[in-house]
């Protein structure tokens, strides 16, 4: 075998057997969150912030924590009102999702038990949101939170899918529509209406898996 053939054989061996490492879901989602935060921060300050490197896994996103949450909400206030109301709502929901992640105020009631989470909303809202633990389908319930969206208090249910967190916002609305996927600042939003409720699921999860959640809900 001459050198050229031998080199080709080495190439084949490598391509067939060497490990190709893949970026995990957790890294993907960490990068997206970091970019979203950076985008929010950049609009606040003209100069880029000092180089900060944070260790992964940083559930202690809290480090950047409160300040970033404030920045994200300021961003929401600062933005020009978009042409149509839906874009404004998407923006508000995406900001709310980011804020919940950043300020470490993800849940008011942390429980995977739907019979704990559902009654918790009683007396806090003038409606009763449907709450369903979907752990068997790979979407475990993490808890619930009272949020404020579109000028009214709403229920935010928090689910997890692999390394990704999902905020599911629920409030009353008429009509029935099939789930549709929207994209806002790198976040996926899936909206649908059913059973007298309006649902908005927000996450950095891919649109397909987010739609699966929609199909599992009422």
């Amino acid at each position: 075998m001459n050198d050229e053939d031998a080199d080709r054989a080495v190439g084949r061996l490598l391509r067939e057997h060497a490990t190709r490492h893949r970026a995990g879901d957790a890294l993907q989602s960490a990068v997206r969150t970091e970019i979203a935060l950076e985008a929010a921060g950049q609009r606040r300050q003209a100069t880029p912030p000092a180089d900060r490197r944070w260790r992964w896994p940083a559930w202690g996103l809290a480090a950047a924590g409160f300040a970033c949450g404030v920045l994200a909400s300021m961003l929401a206030l600062q933005l020009q009102p978009p042409a149509d109301g839906n874009r404004a709502l998407e923006q508000e929901l995406a900001s709310s999702h980011v804020r919940a992640l950043m300020v470490a105020h993800l849940t008011d009631v942390a429980s995977s038990d739907q019979h704990t989470v559902k009654p918790w909303f009683q007396g806090k809202l003038d409606y009763s949101p449907p709450v369903k633990d979907l752990a068997d389908d790979g979407y475990p319930l993490i808890g619930g939170r009272l949020d404020y969206v579109a000028g009214r208090p709403v229920a935010a249910l928090v689910y997890r899918r692999h390394g990704h967190l999902i905020n599911l916002f629920v409030w009353p609305a008429d009509g029935q529509t099939a789930p549709t996927v929207h994209n806002h600042q790198g976040y996926q939003l899936v909206r649908w209406r059913n059973a007298g409720m309006q649902f908005w699921a927000v996450s950095d999860l891919n649109g397909e898996e987010l739609q699966t959640l929609a199909r599992l809900m009422p």
Binding site: A23, A26, L27, A30, V31, I35, R53, R55, W56
Partner: peptide, 9 residues
């Protein structure tokens, strides 16, 4: 993970 995250930023 750290290297890639920092590089993306």
């Amino acid at each position: 993970d750290d290297m890639v995250q920092d590089a993306c930023l």
